[in-house]
Amino acid sequence: MERLLKLNRLMPRWKVLESRSRFLMFVLEGTTESFVRVLLRIMTEEVPTIAIHEVVIETNSSFLSDSFLAQRLRFIPLTSDLANLMYYSTECPNCNGRGYCHLCSVEFRLSAKCVAGDVTSKDLVTSNPSVLPFDFFDPTGTAIVKLKPGEELTLKAIARKGIGKDHIKWSPLAATSAKYFCPSDIRINEELMETLTLEQKKQWVASYPTDLFQVDPQTQKVVLCRPGNGYHNMPLNPEARGVIEVFEKKDTFVFTVETTGALKASQLLMNALAILKRKLLSFRVLEDHFLDHDLAGIDKLDSEN
C-alpha cells in the first residue's frame, strides 16, 4: 500500500473472472481503494441511460392511481445503448430544449383493455426500435398493472436521457448490485515451518483441503498450490496460526457489477472510464486561459522573496 502511494503513476491490471451480458466480475490489481470507489460512484451516478420521464394518461380506470402508475413505469429499465448518441432534453439543439423530438426523446404508447393476464412492459409500443424495455423478449416481461373486466388503460410515456445523480431511475445499477472487496492470501512462515519434520509436514498438509498446500518433493518445503486465489472465508486450524498467516491484499480488488439491464456490464464500465476521462479533461482545457497571467504573477512573487 505504501509502495503504491510513492509511485508517480499507477498501471493497474485487469483480470475478468466472469462476464455475462448483465453481470461482470473482475479483479483490478495494483490500484488504491480511492480509485475503485470513484469507479463505483461514476457507475452509479454519472453514466447516462434512458428512462421514462413524463407520462400522459388518457384513460385510466384501473385500481392504481395515475401517479402510482407513472411511478411504476419510471422504474422499468430501458435498453440504453443509444444514450451516448442522444441529447439531454434541456440541451437539444433540434427542438430548443423542449424535449419532444426524436433526438432527445423516445415515445411509448400503451393501450390495454382487460387483457388476459397482466399489463406488462411488453405492451409498451416504442417509437424507436432500439430503445425497448430490457425484458421485452422475455416470455413474461415486467408486470405494470392487472385489469378487471371493463377496465381500460391508455397512456403515452416520454422517455429521456439522464443520469443517476438527477434521479435514481437513470442509474444503471440496482441498489446493491455493485460491490468490491480485497481478496485474502496466505503467507507461510518459513522459519517456523522448517522446525517440523517431513512426517509432521505431511500431516499438517493433510489437515487442510486437498490442493491447498503440498510438500515439494525435492526441497521438502511446504508450498501454496494456487497463490492469490482469495481465501477470505477459509476456516483456520487454531494450532496453525503461527505457521501461516492470512492477510488482505490491499492493492487488489475483486469487483462485481450487475446492471438493471439498461446497459451491458462491460459497456457500463467502458462508459464510466470515458466519462471520468471527459470530466478530467474538462478542467484541464479551461486551465490554459488563465495560465499565462497567473503563473507570471507567481514568478514575480518568487523573485521578490
Binding site: L10, M11, P12, S266, L269, M270, L273, A274, L276
Partner: peptide, 11 residues
C-alpha cells in the same frame, strides 16, 4: 492511467 486501463481491458 485511464487510457492505459481502457486499452488493457478486454472481455
Amino acid at each position: 492511467e485511464l487510457d492505459h486501463m481502457k486499452n488493457a481491458f478486454e472481455v
